[in-house]
Design a binder for these strands. Sequence first.
RNA 1: GCCGCGGUAGUAUAGCCAGGCCAAGUAUGCGGGCCUUUCGAGCCCGUGACCCGGGUUCAAAUCCCGGCCGCGGCACCA
Length: 513
Amino acid sequence: MGLEEQKRILEDEYPELARPGRAGEKRAETKRLPPLPGAEKGRVVTRFAPNPDFAMHIGNARPAILSHEYAREYRGKMILRFEDTDPRTKTPIKEAYDLIREDLKWLGVKWDEEHVQSLRMEFFYEAAREALEKGCAYIDLCGEAGRELLREGKYCKTRDNSPEWQLGEFDKMLSGVYGEKEAVVRVKTDPNHPNPSIRDWVALRIIDTSKTPHPLVGDKYIVWPTYNFAVTVDDHLMGVTHVIRAKEHEVNTEKQLFLYKCLRWEPPRFIHIGRLKLEGFILSKSFIRKIMDENPGKFWGFDDPRFGTIAGLRRRGITPEAIREVILHLGVKHTEATLSWANLASINRKILDARSDRIMFVESPRAFRVSMDKCREASIPVHPDRPETRKYRICPGDIVYLDSRDVEESPRVRLLGLDNFSVEKERSLLEMIGGGVEYARKASIPIIQWVPASRAVDVKVLKPEGLELVESRGVAEEAIRNYRIGDTLQFVRYGFIRIDKTGSDVTVIYTHD
RNA sequence: GCCGCGGUAGUAUAGCCAGGCCAAGUAUGCGGGCCUUUCGAGCCCGUGACCCGGGUUCAAAUCCCGGCCGCGGCACCA
């Protein structure tokens, strides 16, 4: 069926669809998120609560983007809260606070409020006193034995002491009377709960910050809230209505509900989503740390394009729009999802296509002398959707570079924007045969990219493949110098790339085809 | 081992709560075609799935039970 016929049928049968549309418009109608349970317009408060001990990866981006999207959809607000209450085993990294802020901004996630838990310690102490006073929590002075007792469904006898005693002991904890592991605040749940970790879970513990100082507050505090306690208190204090977090928190939700109930706080709605993996990429913090340690010099840092970190994807040329679209498409499903690279690349390609200028790049270049009757001007479109072109004056005897594979595959080629030639490999000669683009089409002569030798720039292409970075070299039109680090381009018939380094030669990272 | 959650095409997702309009929609992938001075984009056509077994019902992807498989959790981590 010819195009005209297709158009006619479309217009006859579906006139409402026949209006010319652009790719962007189609994407605008991306699927909507399912409604938030119990949400009221203007009263939704969500939060994204990362631990600043590492850069963000695409898995963390999921709750961040969903929290933002829902807040926006319901005209509510979103809170960014750094959960840095463990200076001992998950020590926060000072730089990570900014890295996360940067990544979020880049992803288009805008937050309305920001808090840092290590700067809110008084609130946690206050809440602890309230819990102690109301009999929702107690001080466990049994040390290691306390945990053992709970494992057997029993508990430390201090559980039954009066609120006055509890408050008194809490002050002693704060003033440094007890060392690590000697005293701990527990929330009363059910000492016989089938899940032992839920039995009277720990709300605050002592961390000797003279040994393991906190990057923000040093050794100012020794009594630190645990994740579950800090989260519950802050979600309540900040009026969070909807918590969207990974499903590894399901048990935590159950723990937290005991506190909400005892303190008569209204709990938010909890939505648990599955973890997200990206095909062919490593996301795990610990694994990234490990391979970086084991292979000094091999990786570039958090933003290595071989990692599934936000910074890595950015450096590779993935757009925030594509990440957002993919994540919204995933929705709030409970199951684990493995994002296929092909899918991400496809969405990204459509976005990049519109905004990436075209440059001719030749991999493994081979020089050919042009043989023709007179000088000619070649016009290379900067972008197929726009009229601008780059002009090259090519004269008999000039040298051009062609991809050696292209000349292997065909005895005749059309140099894009110039003319048709027959290839004489032995003499490294291109003999003009003319005939225009119509002839090239009809005769199935491949239209290939080429680079004038007099105006070629050396280019190094780095292609991430698993844990390797495959390097190849070639030449590109000198027009590549018009672009800066961070710009994306399409190398004609090669793929999309992002400029990573400029200098005497140019280093680019291969994004995808 | 113990607790919890889930299983729709190669991948991802819609539908499941409120059973029929679902011989299952969409994206991507794959095959074919159109268009095009790129093997890109766009357009058209095609391909391909309800984990298995029982039950309830006039009717089940949807509800119930069992099995299998997958995932999460079982910290004084977040």
